[in-house]
Amino acid sequence: MKVYTKMPKALQPFYQEELTKAAVALKKGHYMISWRHLERAHILAQPYPCQHTTVHWRMFLFGIKVKNWKEVMGQIPRLLVGGIKSFVGNIPVGNTGGANVPPLLPMEIAKDLAEIINNTKTK
């Protein structure tokens, strides 16, 4: 079991870019685009407790903003245990993190994100 505590520096700009794109799209009212960037940030952040929890917090706030109470309620348990599961290395790889998918379901990772993850693991 591999325990991750800190996101590699080489991965941080890609993660931050997804969060920034999500925020910009949300501000413009482009909710589907914003959500997609949050999902991508979640995939990048999953192994890292702080960043993983941050994405779930952003998803929670997104749910409030768009008045999606299913999403708000679905993010509460993810906020409580997501970071812990990251810390102990027990994550469903590729899961997009929203209440619209089962929290323990592994999912296929988009090719571009898989390349980013593989190219930044050791840097």
Rank of each mutant, 00 (worst) to 15 (best):
Y15G: 09
Y15A: 09
Q16E: 15
Q16V: 11
Q16K: 14
Q16D: 14
Q16W: 05
Q16N: 13
E17C: 00
E17D: 14
E17H: 10
E17P: 01
E18N: 09
E18I: 04
E18M: 02
E18L: 00
E18K: 12
E18H: 12
L19K: 12
L19D: 03
T20Q: 13
T20A: 12
T20P: 00
K21E: 11
K21R: 14
A22Q: 01
A23D: 14
A23V: 05
A23Q: 14
V24S: 04
V24P: 01
A25P: 09
A25H: 12
L26D: 03
L26I: 01
K27M: 00
K27V: 01
K28V: 00
K28Y: 06
G29M: 03
G29L: 08
H30D: 15
H30K: 14
Y31V: 10
M32P: 00
M32Y: 11
M32C: 06
M32Q: 15
I33L: 13
S34K: 10
S34C: 14
S34M: 07
W35V: 00
R36T: 15
R36P: 01
R36M: 12
R36S: 15
H37V: 04
L38Y: 11
E39D: 02
E39T: 08
E39A: 07
E39P: 01
R40P: 01
R40K: 15
R40E: 08
A41V: 01
A41T: 05
A41Y: 01
A41H: 01
A41W: 03
A41C: 05
H42E: 11
H42P: 06
I43M: 07
I43L: 04
I43Q: 05
L44E: 07
L44V: 10
L44D: 05
A45P: 07
A45N: 10
Q46T: 03
Q46G: 02
P47F: 09
P47A: 12
P47H: 13
P47G: 10
Y48A: 05
Y48F: 15
Y48K: 00
P49R: 03
P49A: 06
P49D: 05
C50Q: 13
C50G: 10
C50V: 14
C50P: 00
C50L: 14
Q51C: 03
H52G: 11
H52Y: 12
T53K: 10
T53G: 10
T53F: 09
T53P: 06
T53H: 06
V55E: 08
V55P: 08
H56K: 10
H56A: 11
W57N: 05
W57V: 13
R58D: 01
R58F: 08
R58V: 02
M59S: 11
M59L: 15
F60H: 09
F60N: 03
L61I: 02
L61W: 03
F62Q: 06
F62V: 08
F62C: 04
F62P: 05
F62I: 08
G63V: 05
G63K: 07
G63T: 05
G63L: 04
G63Y: 08
I64K: 11
I64S: 03
I64R: 10
I64V: 15
K65C: 00
V66F: 08
V66T: 15
K67L: 13
K67H: 13
K67E: 00
N68M: 07
N68F: 10
N68L: 06
N68I: 02
N68P: 04
W69Q: 00
W69M: 13
W69P: 04
W69H: 07
W69V: 08
W69I: 12
K70F: 07
K70G: 02
